[in-house]
Amino acid sequence: MDILGVMNIGSSALRAQTIRLNTISSNLANIETTRTPEGGPYRKKSAVFTTASTSFEAHLEQGRPQTAQGVNVQYIRTDNGPGKMVYDPSHPDSDENGYVEKPNINLAEEMTDMMRARGSYEANVTAIKSAQRMAMKALEIGR
């Protein structure tokens, strides 16, 4: 049923936005982290999205390329840009000049990204809800 297809696409988008929110909360949690297993300060992470490739069976069933596609998170990108240098000679991770490299995370940027993730999540929930409402309306024909 195609209505259920809408739900599958919406579900993939909800999952993708959840992962995005995960990376944002990781960035916010580590905004002051100066030590990581890889060495150096924490680096900003962000999710990279890609269209979900439709399965071979779906192509066979439809007999035509499917135009509606879901979304997947392809990978989590690490931003290797330079971090903020803060003068703090008493910090254990300060260099010989007394500067500490803080993570390259901008709080305002993370907050706006978070709002966009939430907005996108809500939009997809609305799409799923209207698919559900349409299905219910179609079932009312029989009554």
Binding site: I3, M7, S11, L139
Partner: peptide, 15 residues
């Protein structure tokens, strides 16, 4: 399990 997956599965079952 993602919360939305549970809700969507229940919605599908309902329909």
């Amino acid at each position: 399990v993602d919360l939305h997956d549970v809700m969507i599965a229940m919605e599908k079952a309902d329909i």
